[in-house]
Design a binder for these strands. Structure first.
Lengths: 221, 221
DNA sequence: TTGACAACCGAACGGCCGTTAGGTATATAG
DNA sequence: CTATATACCTAACGGCCGTTCGGTTGTCAA
């Protein structure tokens, strides 16, 4: 990752700020308007910033700027739907009513209101993480994590975040499904490692991390 | 906030899912492509969904869909209730403060006051069993139950009882130690079966069952 | 002096953008 | 029967979108 010039850095900073304010990356011309440049000049900069690895230009057309390392998800302040569900959780000093969102299948949004199947009040001592953190519970389907002691039907408590560190167990969106895998960052891609010797790792240039598993639980009988 | 029709909800769900996957809301035509509709039909839906207050259409042009989370706070069961005497005693209608007794060793009475290392408040939904049942938490040592997804260091929630049914996972006193094993009654004896193919079963003419495992939990990080 | 790099410009391309207008068909309520 | 609402359609508008092309100016190192 080469270094950016001063100008490039100013542009990148502004783009990040814009995204924070609006929840969306700016268009090329919006950047140009702010810096008093032609769209083609901005485009030159973006190409260079991309070549140096600080942004990616997606295949989605309009506004598909991505800033790796920053939130994939909208504004910190005004943010998106998931928050409402999470914030509705009863919160006191000792415990937290964590929403359970069921087995998440194709295309169904993780935290839409109508997916909340119930809430489980969990002790703070089981939830590593800062005070404001947000959590949800997911029922795991499949055997891909058996060797990590997560069986088919187990529930995992997930702390909402869109980054992860190497080796952490994450919930990530792959195409249309939420999967639970171990997360490893490699050069230029990400490896999602199942804990099952009969399954191979999944590689992707980017994944939408939804959160990291902080706790797993299972009931018997 | 009026209710959405089924179709409208499906669209909203997909939009939220799209945003989670790509970090950006979809365009009108992207929605249309997924549902096989013309862009104008999608637009109709969006207008209605907006009128019902579930989304906002920003002034930014392309992709400026916003999903305000706020409003719907239909805070379900578990919202802030005043601390009652019952709760102080560790028992209310929804949860129970379950004592943790650590790695239980020789001959020491399981639930003596001085063994209690702490309490974890657990949701009733995780505790199968009648209202008056007693529970405790045990930290499991060793690998004897790995194939049942109980790893070294995991905690199990145990319902106090001194009988068990075939196949249940029990806490039993063997000589001077508490072990966690699967319980089977055979003619004239009892078999305690580990969930680890490298270990053999234990046979005993009688065992002191302390309780059955109703829940297991593990924290990460 | 040559050449690479940064930092711009204007003009244009084809296409996708949100949006409007005007229509059809179906269902449900008064 | 009428009215209202949902759920779509085709066709088009004006404009913004990312992107390309060919150019200019300056700076710094070889």
């Amino acid at each position: 990752m080469r270094e950016l010039t001063r100008k490039q850095k100013k542009i990148l900073d502004w783009v990040v700020a814009f995204k924070a304010r609006h929840g969306l990356p700016p268009t090329v011309r919006e950047i140009g308007a702010h810096f008093g440049m032609a769209s083609s000049s901005v485009f030159d900069h973006l190409k260079l910033i991309e070549k140096k690895g600080h942004i990616r230009r997606g295949k989605l057309g309009a506004r598909s700027l991505e800033i790796p390392g920053a939130a994939t998800d909208g504004a910190p302040a005004g943010a998106a739907a998931p928050l409402s569900v999470l914030e509705a959780a009863g919160d006191d000093s000792e415990s937290l009513a964590v929403p359970e969102v069921g087995r998440v299948a194709a295309g169904v949004p993780l935290l839409a209101q109508e997916n909340v199947e119930g809430r489980v009040r969990l002790d703070r001592s089981m939830l590593r993480g800062p005070r404001g953190a947000q959590y949800f519970i997911l029922r795991v389907t499949g055997d891909s994590m058996v060797e990590a002691g997560i069986l088919d039907g187990d529930r995992v408590v997930v702390r909402r975040q869109d980054t992860a560190e190497d080796g952490q167990i994450v919930v990530a969106l792959l195409e249309d499904e939420a999967t639970v895998k171990r997360f490893y960052r490699e050069s230029g891609r990400v490896r999602l490692e199942p804990a099952n010797s009969r399954m191979g790792p999944i590689y992707a240039r980017e994944v939408a991390v939804q959160g990291v598993v902080v706790c797993s639980l299972r009931t018997y009988g």
